[in-house]
Design a protein around this nucleic acid. Structure first.
Lengths: 199, 199, 199, 199
DNA sequence: GATGAATGAGCTTTCATTCAT
DNA sequence: TATGAATGAAAGCTCATTCAT
């Protein structure tokens, strides 16, 4: 009965949604959430402001969808250790994956770190992040305990902070920061059961 | 009514300037630069908007002065290694000082990290930061070279990233993050000439 | 797919038009004309916005058609006194009909009163209303004159105002307003040739 | 210390507030609340939109203040029957005052009636209105009971509806509606203890 | 030095309407 | 007939900044 099929509409909707999210992420990452106006996003995406509001209820909702989409990808990625026991190979995998994510999608992570320090905004996504991070942190602590570390929970936070700091520095200066070298150092330091400390 | 002496005016000027900067820092750190209006700062400091503009040319100028003031304090602090050769004791001092600064003034560092990811804003202060960091980075690299590390410049960035990450995590969660334990680990790891690797 | 006959189309047209008008009336009465969007009407009627515009040229046109339809029904209803002489039974009939209309279709009358006070909107329908009301008013004045009232035209406006006020109050509070009691009082007061004044 | 005295500021504030409220009332009454934009009010009052928001938190707040101000005046006016017993002279006074109010400030009452039918808006002021009306209604019912009316509470609502209807018709057509004649009829009908029914 | 009334550009959001299919 | 993606003007509102006093 309808001359444009439901699939056609769905395709249009998907491609526009994707376009808007990509454009918004780019601009948010470039100038910050507050400094990026809806007008700018619409103009950059070559659509009208009104259309953007056909797809997203508000600017904040747009931000949330961008973040949740990425977090959900992470959730899938980090899920596999079903048994709850983290082996050194798995830790290595997670570390490599973390670096890989940042290298593949630095724009998102720039946005992520920007928001990390804006308390009001972060409240929105905090819960989802904890769902991802909590079990991983627990397993990592168990790993360090099994490896004979004293204060294993401190080492878990140490590694977390280290990964955050490396990501941050890579994002701030992707061309010069020696992320691959550092990745190897970290792997060697924490996932090497023979425990030679590299210098 | 009573004529004020030049010193009295100067005193007023200084105390008001200080008040405004302190209030602004607090609010910027709490809600972010964009979400903090001049009106709110003025109200919180119990002065008029007009007066604020007597002391600071613009909102951006106010931000810059807050940041530059803190950076200048850092510059003083990190200056002393005049000879340009960093000993392990000095590195230990710098690391301890870095942690100390964050613990003493988390509000500033929250603001700092917030801005770190807003390229346009950061351009404003980048130069000054480099003036501080550059020689220190150079000396640290030399230190690692002398200690026999391969790729000493990588290790310099590693330490920088580690300190950034630790600061970040402390700011995000000051009550639970075990910053003192981690401080000792870092010191032990990099400033201990006997080179026992702590676990 | 299957070709529809002209009658089928006509049937569809009529039922859709009716559906749209009924839905719009309900929403206009509930939230006001300005606060009811075309989107909401379309959604509530389970049709597309585009279809609505196939049937009505504009939102204003839709409003006008809703009002004119009802006014035309009134016109039919109040027409019968062809001879132009209003007897007390006929006045009684008109009064009872007036109350009946309000009780049967309070939504329409809520909308009607809402619009009554918006001059620009009312201009649109004023003429048609006058076509209905004018002869009735004239006849009522004659009726009062024959009944021996001084200033009969004043009493005509008095009765008009009374009916308006009663309708208004009923619409505002249909559950508590004693419309039937008041109806009897009014009838008794003006259509009773024996002139006992009820208390 | 401040070169413009507090009184000067206060005077400015008062006169601007008054100007804005008067302008807004005029436009609201002319075109309706929804059809009157803040821009239009500001332009008509020859001020900037921003200034309007210095004095009123929102468009809705502006509306409320206009209404509450008038309602408070009414509250004062209708308060005096402290003993709670309504004499026929007092009822006469109230009726005359009601008509007087409408004649003096038809714009406000046009706005009032407009809003009366917009449920969402009316919620805002309903409570305050009831505070005014409730005791008066109660006393009027007692009055009718003492006068020997059957169903006195019905007559109270009858009178209320009559006054509403008269006001409404006067507002809709102030030049032709014979409000003074009708006023006398109403007074004669309800406040005349000798009970001659005027025709 | 100090005040706060005043401005106006720009923000997010809504919505009647159009149009390709 | 029927769809809903798309538009753009205009709405309510915010806020850095100015200025007369």
């Amino acid at each position: 009965m309808s001359p444009k099929s439901e699939e056609q509409f769905e395709e249009i909707r998907q491609s526009k949604t994707k376009l808007i999210k990509a454009t918004a992420l780019e601009l948010f990452a470039l100038s910050g959430y507050e400094n990026t106006s809806i007008s700018k996003i619409a103009k950059e995406a070559s659509i009208s402001k009104g259309l953007l509001y056909n797809y997203f209820d508000s600017k904040e909702e747009l931000l949330k969808e961008i973040i949740f989409e990425q977090l959900d990808l992470m959730l899938e990625l980090f899920d596999p250790n079903k048994d709850g026991v983290l082996e050194s190979d798995e830790l290595k995998f997670f570390i490599r994956e973390s670096f890989s994510m940042v290298k593949k999608n630095p724009e998102f992570w720039r946005l992520y770190f920007m928001l990390l320090f804006q308390p009001n905004v972060m409240k929105l996504v905090e819960k989802r992040i904890m769902e991802i991070a909590e079990p991983l942190l627990q397993n990592t602590t168990d790993y360090f305990r099994r490896q004979g570390y004293e204060k294993p929970e401190v080492w878990t936070r140490y590694v977390g902070a280290l990964l955050d700091g490396v990501s941050m520095n890579y994002i701030a200066d992707p061309n010069n920061f020696p992320i691959d070298d550092i990745e190897n150092i970290v792997i060697n330091q924490f996932c090497n059961t023979s425990k030679n400390t590299e210098k």
